[in-house]
Design a protein around this nucleic acid. Structure first.
Length: 143
RNA sequence: GAGGCAGUCUGUUCUAUCGACUGGCGAAAGCCAGUAGGAAAGUCCGGGCAACACAGGGCACCGUGCUUCCUAACGGGAAGGGGUGCAAAGCGCAAGCAAUGCACUACAGAAAGUGUCGCAGAAACUAAACCGCCUCUUCUGAGGUAAGGGUGAAAAAGCGGGGUAAGAGCCCACUCGUGCAGCAGUGAUGCUGCAUUGGGAUAAACCUCACGGGUUGAAAGACCAAAUAAACCCAGGCCAAAAGCGGCCCGCUUCGUGACUUCGGUCCGUCUGGGAGGGUAGGUCGAUGGAGCACAAGUGUGAAUUUGUGCCUAGAUGAAUGAUAGAAACUCAAUGCGUUGAGUACAGAACCCGGCUUAUAGGACUGCCUUUUUU
RNA sequence: GGGCUGUUAGCUCAGUUGGUUUAGAGCACUAUCUUGACAAGGUAGGGGUCGAUGGUUCGAAUCCAUUACAGCCCA
């Protein structure tokens, strides 16, 4: 019926501490220049120092006001992005655990139109592959 | 019955799985409850709240503009008055007046002053003589005239009669306007009487009058934690001049009884403003129980308001209120009458309220208009 | 959250304050002259609901109100 599979080890939560809230980190994030891009997404990233408390990855989702004029549309896009991330995030967590990295990230929607949930899922899987491939390189650069 | 327009109200529901935020319970795992709108929007207005400023007066600036009322307040609303447009019983010889109905109305002052009124036209503002009309005449002009023509958005009340050389409020009746008085009304204003020839428009042009307005907005502001630098540079004030009263003036208020001196100033202290540089950029409060909502009764034409009873109804902060699947309801299209397909508006709180304006699929109700059928 | 500005020809802008005259300039476009042909240049011409709706006025791109769409600023 649904694509979501129940598992005792993995839960598809998205709590407050997984979200990126710090003003300071966000400012640094967009200056770092580290990103991967795959239409209709763009993912900016910045490595956090070792031993940062909380989860391995803090992330924020956003949709630009320039392409989505109405607040309803921006909310819709951000909510879809959150749901898609929530389901697929465990692959990233595993990889980060292996490399012993902490990461801050911003997921930006660069498309022009709102996609359906199924299209979003496919598109996010693609950018996730690119991101995983780039992780070791990011570790070298920031070290 | 069908279609259109305007107004008011309403504006999808249920189940499963995976989540988010707030509150409660719990040692924890977790469980339970709640979680977007009528416009949350535009930011066009008005308040609450907060900080700073503040003897008082005048000018300037900005806003509002029929009256009375409602309201915490308003540029909002209610009721009323006037005006304009359309229809119009009726009255009048006519000009015209006009009960009543519907719609609209930013509606103070143009006899305080200034500006503007192109083209056309003879003449456009304390007016004028082109054609015309009349009188005189040396036949070319002089004078009278504001009926008629023509121009214009607008030509200095209208119409009928008298009067006259021709004409003219020159005189009279009626109508309109203005002024004064009386009456009615809280008032805008209306009615009646008397007087009066009574010489334009524009104030959404300047302006005048009346009333109102201190400035800045929750990125206001308060507290806690962390960090830190009472340092440095420049300008100015400190007993008679400057600063302040966030535009200006009057006026008012405030601040070294320091040291040295060649009396020009210098130094010290202190205050104010600016520069450069450094640190932090986390949390709590503000902040969700309020001009609150629902119902009933009373008062009022109404907007509203009083009393009683009941209810608690989002509170995020890089920002929750969601995603997926299935079913139902409604609408539309195709129908093989079994169904199949598509669609379900406008739109997302950011301190909170009261209005205004704008957007809105479908449904319900009310009013008006058009058309068809029947009686 | 709070505030400010703009919208005129296909493009870039004047004109708006202070109303009536013809809405104008440059580039572009069309025709034509010149050239063997093109460019440049000369001559002539076309092209505007002045963002929209309503109001004030005799008359509105201009004044007033509402509205739509752009752009900018404030820690």
């Amino acid at each position: 019926m649904t694509s979501v599979q129940h598992s005792s080890s993995q839960r598809f939560t998205f709590r407050k501490d997984e979200r990126l809230c710090s003003d300071k980190i966000i400012a640094g994030l967009f200056q770092s220049g580290i990103f991967v891009s795959k239409y209709p997404f763009r993912l900016n990233a910045m490595r956090l120092p070792q031993g940062t408390p909380g989860p391995r990855l803090q992330i924020l989702m956003t949709a630009p006001k320039r392409t989505f004029k109405r607040a309803v549309d921006r909310n819709r896009v951000k909510r879809l992005m959150r749901e898609v991330y929530r389901v697929q995030k465990h692959r990233l967590y595993e990889e980060l655990e292996k490399l012993d990295m902490h990461l801050a990230a911003a997921l930006i929607f660069t498309g022009r139109e709102i996609l359906s949930h199924a299209e979003m899922e496919k598109a996010f899987a693609k950018i996730l592959e690119r991101c995983l491939a780039a992780l070791p390189e990011w570790k070298e650069r920031s070290a």
